[in-house]
């Protein structure tokens, strides 16, 4: 009986287009990976939208324009080579963000004030 699969998920056991043949592409190296940030309009932050490969920064910006701003989604693009992005470790998230846990007094709703008080 055939194994179930979905669109975009065909089991390895099923043959694809044609029988496998070797190609000479394996010796090629990927261009560096870049993270793309887009400012959608003046006054807003640049926001991470995705990533792409490019040989250099100029190409990364042009490719980002073609891929991420085809429908006027942006007016400014930042690209950063992915290897320069340093990230906090999700395994340490509990301890790392713990200091904020017991400081509810940093929120305005912590303070119980009379209803008559306005503009505050």
């Amino acid at each position: 009986m055939p194994r179930k699969f979905y669109y975009g998920d065909i089991p390895d056991a099923q043959g694809a287009g044609t029988n496998a043949t070797s190609t000479n592409t394996s010796n090629e190296k990927d261009w560096p990976l870049w993270e793309v940030f887009i400012r959608s309009k003046q006054g807003l932050d640049h926001k991470h939208v995705g990533s792409l490969h490019a040989a250099d920064a100029a190409m990364a910006i042009e490719n980002a324009r073609d891929v991420y701003t085809r429908r006027m989604e942006g007016i400014s693009i930042w690209v950063v080579e992915s290897k320069y992005v340093h990230a906090s470790n999700p395994d340490d998230a509990g301890a790392f963000y713990e200091p904020a846990n017991d400081k509810v007094y940093r929120h305005p709703t912590f303070y119980d004030l009379p209803d008559e008080l306005s503009h505050m």
């Binding site: 669109y7 975009g8 065909i10 390895d12 099923q14 043959g15 694809a16 287009g17 044609t18 029988n19 496998a20 043949t21 070797s22 190609t23 592409t25 394996s26 090629e28 190296k29 990927d30 990976l33 995705g50 990533s51 792409l52 490969h53 891929v67």
Partner: peptide, 30 residues
């Protein structure tokens, strides 16, 4: 295609590997 390749790369595979698998007939498509 690019959005999806990028999403797959976050799992530790490389673009080159995926392209190679497509061209060799090892990978599948709809």
């Amino acid at each position: 295609g690019l959005y999806l390749y990028s999403a797959a790369e976050t799992l530790g595979t490389s673009r080159q590997q995926m392209i190679d698998d497509l061209l060799s007939g090892k990978a599948k498509y709809s």
